[in-house]
């Protein structure tokens, strides 16, 4: 009898553990803000440039230059001033790693 029960119990225990702990990273939290203008996952359907899959280096350089005002922008300078170097790196890594 237990030969049948054991695999069954194992299966049930696994299925109740389906809800594995979900972690939300700081990078994801910060980057989700960008989606309202750049599209979900940074994939823009319209006139605003996509950032999905751009290299981390490109994104960090752009954001830091927007922030410093050395790269011209309409609204990005005003946004970039809201993020620290560390936060910019987290955002850049997030978008660079979206498949």
């Amino acid at each position: 009898m237990y030969r049948l029960f054991l695999p069954l119990m194992m299966l049930l225990m696994t299925s109740t553990n389906l809800a594995q702990a979900v972690e939300i990273s700081r990078g994801m939290m910060l980057s989700n803000s960008c989606a309202a203008c750049h599209g979900t996952d940074g994939k823009s359907p319209g006139a605003i440039p996509s950032i999905k899959g751009k290299s981390a280096e490109f994104i960090t350089t752009s954001l830091k230059e927007f922030r410093a005002g050395t790269r011209s922008s309409t609204v990005m300078g005003r946004h970039a001033k809201g993020y620290s170097d560390e936060e910019i790196q987290l955002i850049a890594d997030y978008f660079a790693n979206i498949k």
Binding site: A36, C37, G39, S44, P45, G46, A47, I48, T74
Partner: peptide, 23 residues
């Protein structure tokens, strides 16, 4: 030119946010 670009981005923003919310 700046005002024109922001008008263009206004439309681009609408496309993006509606796809982010409803797409």
């Amino acid at each position: 030119e700046f005002r024109q670009l922001e008008a263009r981005y206004a439309a681009g923003w609408y496309d993006s946010i509606t796809s982010d919310a409803f797409g």
